[in-house]
Design a protein around this nucleic acid. Structure first.
Lengths: 209, 209
DNA sequence: TCACAGCGAGACTCAGGGGTTCCGGAACTG
DNA sequence: CAGTTCCGGAACCCCTGAGTCTCGCTGTGA
């Protein structure tokens, strides 16, 4: 879906004329991601994208036919920042596994991107699909995999609803960020891990303060 | 803040002319709430509000100076639908208390209103304040009060972080509604109560299926 | 009866933003 | 060189929606 290469495919012999600068793609996509994170989807104007990318609007529209398609591509190409179970080394316990990704969940501006993208997801079904895949499915899947790992270690108490538990952390973090309008800092996340997630999964009483 | 009555206050002797129809206020506010719930804040146009209220745009603007102020008033006047601890009779256990409000949390279109209002909260600080008060503070406070009641009954296990636990249910429901774009049906909420909230608070193992 | 104010309807202004087009210049092919 | 394509910049079209105004009508107090 990224940029048009139909003609190149159809005619491998290179056509005359200046070649399209492929590096501009990344610059435009990154500018798009930044602006969505900063101002939300409605606040992200095509003029602003072009200006921040240091390009003309025509250059943007030569590569993407509309704002929606640009948005979709920008988010898809940003998925490199999303953690999967393979990115999280086994540290030996559920708690330390969770603590090890505590920073990553906050460090990237992925949460701001999620926040800004959210309103677009309500308007356009295409965006909604990408949003759901990348910010709902992916995060729940990671949590589910970490719980599975803990299960194999024997950490999980019997009778636990792992699917349900896997949604708790994504829900609480997204809620803090998107709905409550607050910050989900490292201390908040640690508190959540120690008083909510680990007790839920292992049935242990949280350590006294 | 509702409607202008400055002149009436300044000159108690009634002026000539047709009197403002006070019943129109409620009709307009209700139309506003409906449209925000259905289409979101951006999708709620002043023309649509006037049309649904069966009134002219001038009538709307005679009473509220702007879209933002109308929105704020509409939400504030809708707070009658918000549950407080006094609305929830003590049923004898945390679980049955929670189950008793399960329907109410879903029945009213309050969740849709929250969803639609959310984008407006990002744009306008006035709306953000009302939103936070009514959909974040109020819900967490109700949960906190229910947990407190359970504590006095002796249901709560030692060492629990009640403030943290009080945010779990609002977070998960809002997440389902607003972020995940799904439905938080009665069965989902029951599952959440039995596998998340009650175990967290009481330390009990959820009943096997 | 008459002046005045609220009423619904609809035309109107104005600003912002998506999308298009044109321009002069630069890069590439042959 | 010619022809072609991309580039940044900027002007431009056009639709949408907030907010204003006018019109003809309906009540209401003096």
């Amino acid at each position: 879906m990224q940029a048009n290469d139909d003609v190149l495919v159809a005619a491998p012999a290179r056509r005359p004329g200046r070649r399209r600068d492929a590096s501009k793609d990344d610059v435009i996509l990154e500018a798009t991601r930044q602006l969505i994170a900063e101002r939300g989807y409605e606040g992200m104007t095509m003029d602003a994208v072009a200006e921040r990318a240091g390009t003309g609007k025509a250059t943007v529209y030569r590569r993407w036919p509309s704002k929606v398609e640009l948005t979709v591509d920008a988010v898809i190409c940003g998925r490199q920042f999303i953690l999967t179970i393979d990115d999280v080394p086994d540290t030996g316990s559920l708690r330390s596994d969770l603590m090890s990704i505590r920073g990553a969940a906050r460090g990237s501006r992925n949460d701001e991107l999620m926040h800004g993208l959210h309103q677009a997801a309500r308007v356009d079904p295409q965006v909604a699909a990408v949003f759901h895949e990348q910010f709902v499915i992916a995060r729940t899947a990671l949590m589910r995999a970490l719980l599975e790992r803990a299960l194999h270690r024997g950490e999980i108490a019997p009778g636990r609803d792992l699917d349900m538990i896997a949604t708790v952390a994504p829900a609480m973090i997204a809620y803090q960020k998107v709905v409550a309008g607050g910050k989900a800092g490292p201390d908040y996340i640690e508190r959540m891990i120690d008083h909510i997630i680990v007790p839920l999964a292992t049935g242990s009483v949280p350590a006294a303060e």
